[in-house]
Amino acid sequence: MEEEVEAGAVKKFMYVNRKQPYGTVYALEVLEMVLISAAFDQDVHLVFTDDGVLQLKKNMATDGIGMKNFSKTYRALEGYDIEKLYVDQESLDERGLTEDDLLVDVQVISRAEMADLMDQMDVVLTA
């Protein structure tokens, strides 16, 4: 007897992070959504642009504001097989940052390259 297995199609997903980590809850919520959705084995792309690049800043110390420092969790993404992380150079420049300021390995691309990448996606979610 053959079992019918529904072969789920793999889609290209992009999560676009555009906000700082602690002023609002968006960054943490997206991170949790990404971790949960990792179970569905989709082709996930994580983009950090505009103020979103600040989510990946090294050396966060959140004791003074009474919130949990969740930046270490970005380093767990590799274990969840989420390895396509992108940052645009222009957003880093605007904030006086360089790739060395980031706590995970990312691909630094230009805004034009980011636009091309976004154009290839099946699903794009932004927060």
């Binding site: 602690y22 110390a61 003074g64 504001i65 930046s71 300021d101």
Partner: peptide, 11 residues
């Protein structure tokens, strides 16, 4: 505000 700088890893 210093605590907000520190939280964001800003020197």
């Amino acid at each position: 505000l210093g605590p907000d700088l520190a939280a964001r890893g800003l020197d």
